[in-house]
Design a protein around this nucleic acid. Sequence first.
DNA 1: CGCTCAGTTGAGTCTTGTCAACCACAGTGG
DNA 2: CCACTGTGGTTGACAAGACTCAACTGAGCG
Lengths: 247, 247
Amino acid sequence: MIALKQPVPSNCGDCPIRNRAVCAHCDHDELVALEEIKYYRSFEAGQTIIWSGDKMNFVGSVVSGIATLTQTMEDGRTQMVGLLLPSDFVGRPGRDGAAYDVVATTDIVMCCFRKAPFEELMSKTPHIAHRLLQMTLDELDAAREWMLVLGRKTAREKIASLLSIIARRDASLAATTSGGGKVFDLPLTREAMADYLGLTLETVSRQMSALKKDGVILLEGKRHVTIPDMQRLLEEAGDDSDGGFLT
Amino acid sequence: MIALKQPVPSNCGDCPIRNRAVCAHCDHDELVALEEIKYYRSFEAGQTIIWSGDKMNFVGSVVSGIATLTQTMEDGRTQMVGLLLPSDFVGRPGRDGAAYDVVATTDIVMCCFRKAPFEELMSKTPHIAHRLLQMTLDELDAAREWMLVLGRKTAREKIASLLSIIARRDASLAATTSGGGKVFDLPLTREAMADYLGLTLETVSRQMSALKKDGVILLEGKRHVTIPDMQRLLEEAGDDSDGGFLT
DNA sequence: CGCTCAGTTGAGTCTTGTCAACCACAGTGG
DNA sequence: CCACTGTGGTTGACAAGACTCAACTGAGCG
């Protein structure tokens, strides 16, 4: 996994997530106040950013890179409960301890705010609180969507669902849409995929092979994926959203 | 299921969920403004309150009774994604269509606010927005907790998890704690439990029988449950939070 | 060259789902 | 009063999907 050292934005105006992060709706003055309490931190792929149970003294946004939110049982079973992409928010205002492990899966840059001043600021600037509410509601929807995947879908459907989610968001970022087909690199290992989907890594591997054999996806190496027919993938995911009233 | 006709509170001061709902932090003036736009609605057990995809013209709080939030796939597989208890909030400010079906599982009373004026009010009164953010964050945590249950727990652990959740919240409301044991009536059918846990109703039934046979729970009729040893139940749920470093 | 790490594949097992029969109870109408 | 019916729940036999354990491949690296 080659992850280029991401440049840290020199100021909020240049920030790549300026329009989507907690600060999206902030006006100039609010931004200035935020700049006062912000600092950047970088983490390497594989590093744990926050340990579950640790005291959190900051909150922040992912600027670039990908992190995961995971929960682990005493016997080692782990479940991923969130995938943090650029602009996603980390930490919970009004709570001291972290509830989940946060792990960088690629090199990552975070824009952190000291927690106390951030909370202070939040109570004074409705723009931030409002944006955070929006983002939290979106995350709640995503979590509920995922509950359907975890509870009711087969292994094959789970894989297809994950691939279509990655394809979709990649589409909104740097999607390479070559001739109707979507192309991207999987940001997750087979094990991370398994943890996301409530499967074992062997099952993930088998179903990836099966989808490849059936022509639903093309694989080049282990990580480079091409989706020749997005509609087909969605059908495999059980998300055949257009009703399917024909045949 | 006998569900007494719940009395509708005559004003917010008498409201049983006054301290826990969206309006919890509101001062007198804010409450007056809310009263302007609020109205009560009652639904009978089994009634669908909101259909997924419908246009929502209200948001509101559950005053008494229980409702479920469910998602359904084209082929009929359904997954419950939320359990709505008194004080829980229904609806999403800033979105028109409902994302999930909301179904009353007992007779239920809701305190509804017309959506547009509520949104208007929310933008002006930080107390409401702030409380809603808190509640949404709590729901997100609950959803993530549930993702672990759905993704990684066995059928037996799932049942034990559900029972312990119900026991715990019942404890905070009307818990009958008779001599160290918790006693309550299941508010859900076996099918609803299955939909919550990502299981079939047969598996739910089998695991309930197994837990009964093993003395983890006592069953009287189909719904009346006694938990003689809460710690034991938590162990069965895989939530053995006290570490279990002895043996 | 040998090591490690991520991933693949195979064989066998086990949990859970499927299909079906059956029970208990409540209501209903003759 | 009693058969009849519908609903919610239980139980059994069997099948299938996913897991476990294990061997193996291939790429990258010192």
